[in-house]
Each structure stands twice: as C-alpha cells, then as structure tokens.
C-alpha cells in the first residue's frame, strides 16, 4: 500500500477544495468517462479525470495553475455521466474558487486597459494568464454573457 504524505500547504488546499465542493476526491476510480464526454478537452491542458487524479496524489498546484479549470464552462455533461455520481463540475468550480478567493482573476474587462497597444495587452495577458476584453469588444455582448463570464472568472 502506498502511503501518501502531504505537506501542510497541500493539505490545506486539498481540504479547501473538498470543503467548497463537498466531494471526497478519493471516491473517483479513474474510469475516464468525464473526460471522454467533455466537449472542451482539446482546449484543456489536463483532462478532467486527471484533475481528480492529481488531487488524489496531492498535486494541487498542478490543478490550480491549469488552464482546464478556467476552460471548463460548467456544462455538467461530466456530472450527469460519472458512474460514481461525482459532481465533477463542482470540483472544477472549487479549484476556480480557490484561485478567485486569492484575488486571481482569469478575465479582465477593466476600462483602464482600453488605451494599451495590442503588444502591451498581449504581454500582460501572457504574464498574468488573464484575458483582457477592451471597450470595443465589451460593447458587443448581451448582459447574459458579461454577467456569467464575470461571475465565473473574476473574484
């Protein structure tokens, strides 16, 4: 039997994810169904089932810094298909929340970026792993799109 020993930070974040989601990550038996049915995996860097696997092995940082948790749009396909009844979308939400609650956004619609050049914007986007939406683009969206995006992707 493998005995996993986690450091304090790992323990803290893993407990946080389990607390926010209300899910015990060790219930996942790695069948891969969630990833097989997810419509957005080709834009993700780790698969939804790998999110569960990394958490089981205490690799919380790999999950928290992944693109996957932001790309997931909470479509609940995985949630309805998991044979163990795990609400996978909630795990991904909890990982987003851990970042958001530390003030890490993934979207910025702030007007102060409107005067930046394309190069300057590109630089900030890369450095901070954030998506900047300028005034020209902001105006194009219906309320439903802006409210849901900012609710999901900003602190």
């Amino acid at each position: 039997m493998i005995n996993l020993v986690f450091d304090e930070t790992t323990k803290k974040f893993l407990a946080k994810i389990e607390y926010i989601s209300g899910i015990n990550v060790y219930r996942c038996f790695q069948c891969g169904r969630c990833s097989a049915d997810c419509p957005s995996i080709n834009m993700m860097d780790i698969l939804p089932n790998q999110v569960l696997r990394f958490l089981q092995f205490g690799q919380v940082e790999r999950v928290l810094s992944s693109k996957t948790i932001w790309i997931c749009a909470s479509c609940f396909t995985c949630t309805t298909r998991c044979p163990k009844g795990i609400d996978v979308a909630k795990i991904l939400e909890a990982a987003r929340q851990v970042n958001l609650r530390q003030n890490k956004d993934w979207l910025n619609i702030n007007i102060f970026h409107d005067n930046l050049t394309e190069e300057e914007k590109e630089k900030i986007q890369k450095e901070k792993d954030i998506n900047i939406i300028d005034g020209k683009r902001r105006a194009e969206f219906p309320t439903i799109a802006l409210v849901s995006a900012t609710r999901k992707l900003t602190a």
Binding site: S40, M43, I71, A73, W106, I133, F141, A145, S148, A149
Partner: peptide, 19 residues
C-alpha cells in the same frame, strides 16, 4: 445536448467558434 461554449464568448471566443 452539447454546450455552445457559454460565457467563453467573452473570455475565449475561439472556444465558442469551435463549439
């Protein structure tokens, strides 16, 4: 029953174009 990409039209438009 497939997701249209939802609010990613704001944050990741290429995902919505794909879906």
């Amino acid at each position: 029953r497939e997701c249209c990409g939802s609010y990613h039209v704001v944050s990741k438009p290429e995902l919505v174009y794909m879906r």
